[in-house]
Amino acid sequence: MNDTTEGTHMKILVTGATGVVGRHVVDRLVGAGVSVRALTRNPVAAGLPPQVEVVEGDLTAPQSVADALRGVERMYLFSVEQTAREIVTLAAQAGVRRVVVLSAASVTAGLHTNPVERAVEESGLEWTHVRPCGFMANMSQIWAPSIRAERVVRYPFADEPMNLIHEADIAAVAVAALLHDGHHGKAYTLTGPALVTVREQVRAIGQALGEQVRYEEVTRERARELMKAQGGFSAETADLMLGFVEYDGGAASGADGYADQDWSALMRVWPDVEQVTGRAPRDYAEWARDHLADFR
Rank of each mutant, 00 (worst) to 15 (best):
E81W: 04
L240T: 00
A119V: 02
H180D: 13
G231R: 12
H112Y: 08
M227L: 14
R224E: 11
D181F: 00
E211I: 08
G182N: 12
W270R: 11
R282K: 05
A238R: 06
A61W: 06
V196S: 05
T189F: 04
E81D: 04
T189Y: 01
L292R: 15
L29G: 07
Q230H: 07
E81N: 08
A144H: 13
E56L: 07
A187W: 10
R222H: 15
E217K: 11
R74Q: 07
V88Y: 06
E86R: 10
L209W: 02
S234P: 12
A84I: 01
G232F: 12
L178P: 04
R268M: 13
G7T: 12
R296C: 04
P62Q: 00
E121V: 09
A235N: 07
P49N: 03
P50T: 11
A255N: 03
Q51A: 15
N42W: 07
H180R: 15
E236Y: 13
A68P: 00
L240D: 00
A194R: 11
V14R: 03
H180M: 12
V213K: 04
E216C: 05
D27Y: 01
A223I: 06
L164Y: 08
Q261R: 13
P43R: 02
T40K: 10
A259N: 02
V21W: 00
E286T: 14
P43K: 01
L102N: 06
G110E: 02
T18L: 03
V34S: 03
G31N: 11
A17D: 05
H166K: 09
G110D: 03
H166E: 08
L266M: 14
A238L: 10
R74L: 01
E53Y: 04
M75S: 06
N138M: 11
Y258E: 02
L266K: 03
E236M: 15
R268T: 15
T8G: 13
L13F: 06
A105P: 03
E81F: 05
M227R: 03
A109N: 05
E216K: 05
V26S: 09
L292P: 00
V96M: 09
G192W: 10
A158V: 04
P271C: 11
G232R: 13
R28C: 10
T60Q: 08
G192R: 10
V52S: 01
T5F: 13
S79R: 05
G110A: 06
E221R: 12
R118H: 13
V65Q: 01
D260L: 13
P271V: 09
L90R: 08
M227S: 08
H184F: 11
L39G: 02
D248N: 11
L292I: 10
V44R: 09
V130Q: 08
L13G: 03
V52W: 06
E286M: 09
Y188S: 06
I87L: 07
G124H: 14
A45N: 10
A92T: 15
L39K: 01
R70K: 12
L29V: 06
V116L: 00
V152A: 11
V273T: 13
E6L: 14
R222P: 06
G206L: 00
R41I: 09
V120P: 00
V175Q: 15
R203L: 14
V130G: 06
W263V: 09
R74G: 04
R268S: 14
A265H: 03
T60S: 15
Q141F: 07
Q230S: 09
V101F: 02
S146F: 05
R97F: 04
T113N: 14
